[in-house]
Design a protein around this nucleic acid. Sequence first.
RNA 1: GGGCCGUUAGCUCAGUCGGUAGAGCAGCGCACUUUUAAUGCGCGGGUCGUCGGUUCAAGUCCGACACGGCCUACCA
Length: 518
Amino acid sequence: MFMPTIFIFRHLSMFHFGAEAGSMLRFMLTGRWKRGSMSETESSNEYREQRLANLAALQMLGYPPYGRAFERSGSLSELRAAFEEGRTVKAAGRLATVRDMGKSIFADLRDGSDRFQLYVQMKTLGEEAFKAFNLLDLGDHIGIEGELFTTRTGEATIKITRWTLLSKALLPPPEKWHGLKDVEMRYRQRYLDLIGNPEVRELFNKRFAMIREIRQYLADRGFMEVETPMLQAQAGGAAAKPFVTHYGALGSDVYMRIAPELYLKRLLVGGFDKVFELNRNFRNEGLDRTHNPEFTMLEIYEAFSDVTGMHELIQGMITHVAQSVFGSLVIGEGETALDLTPPWREVTYHALVKEKMGEGWFDLPLTDACAQAEALGLSLDPGWDLLMVTHEVYEKTIEPSLIQPTFVTRLPANLVPLARTCSDDPSLVDVFELVIRGQEVAPAYTEMNDPIEQRQRFLDQVGDDASKLDIDFITALEHGMPPAGGMGVGIDRLMMILSGAEAIRDVILFPQLKRKAD
RNA sequence: GGGCCGUUAGCUCAGUCGGUAGAGCAGCGCACUUUUAAUGCGCGGGUCGUCGGUUCAAGUCCGACACGGCCUACCA
């Protein structure tokens, strides 16, 4: 269903068109006749000046520089899919390349879906509209009407009969062949990265597809998506440093959340049995290859389930996403290829440590254990006990070596204050950490629902500072939280793994960077 | 926070032993009605990240700073 598009083509006969008009307007605007007469201090604006002159010239010729809605026959990829020799179509997009042949021009139009070649012929278009076309610059958005045909070299092309200006670009697009390489500019001006580097746009298309599939996967299994506070009076649910901000109306400081966990559990108390939240967390920590201060986290809670239920859920979810979005369960090639074919390896924390350090590790005297750890090149703190030394060994040498997906289970209780202990061993908790490519992707727990024990664990963690205790959360538990499985999934890291990205900045559109000095 | 590397035209990059700056793309001009990294001829474009130092002379050597990258540290 298409509304007829109204093209307004006004013709001003008092001007000769094209370059002459451009020069005349440039003179009128700047008082200078030739570019060469401009001082070198204006050099950084040379492109802008040139384009402003072209804009003014186009405007005088009846082409308003910033148009409104333009009815298209379809996106460029839709036009390509429905190609039919001789059909009249309307299309819109950004002028990507121009090959000027004199009395005819080939140009590439690009939109969010594809590129499409335009053939601009003086004979077809008429001399005035043709000359006005010459005032366009790379990066301008135009709307066109024309006829589909195939060139001598076999390329689907639109021979345009009319065109209109939709948006004049005052600054040039990135270099057409090499694309935009400057890493800083790629992140700070991501739009230029997206214009110049099609593979970047494709990666973010896939990120959207991945998130859409995850939401659908969970919705299909009866999970409800919720939003809980990002501004919190106490930043709980994880042990990270929060960002502090000030709430003027309340006259008090509030924290950006570091995790939604404590609110999602309140919802379990309230009777929502299957909930998830997929949104941003904020942690006031350093920046590196795998850390951005704001990152996207998926947290899932399921009443009457436990860590085993989470195991099934995450394995199913990731393999589904890999297959449907990335088309394969094998990521990468050769030695470093990742094979996501289920079932994934499941191994206890203790077994992994023994595998690395020997069967007798947990019976070693502390000094012997420290000696062995230091022999691996680890630097230890003198105050550490065997559990802490063990965990250092795990984090620094074992976890990074787990390339293929691995569920590490039954972690020491002191590492995980919000999880329930194993029924056969109170020193361990009923959890797993899913590790892929040496990175912790998803921790899951059988959640602690005993308010008395929860209060004690919090107190153990924060010391005597009762002000850091989330009393309201404890109160919620006292109203009775059903036994539950819970899980967190780092969406950015999952995206890195599935797309093969080396840095978290490559999967976040606008990653945090240092502020530019003024 | 520490170490190493980088910053040259709008973009992508060269720049030798310290001797006053180069290419491709983009831009401007001319030619060209089936090209596609169009082509050919011509032209313009630089505070060599910033500040200071050494030197007759600094893009080049030295120091500080800014920003970026990698490593490391911190980090549920």
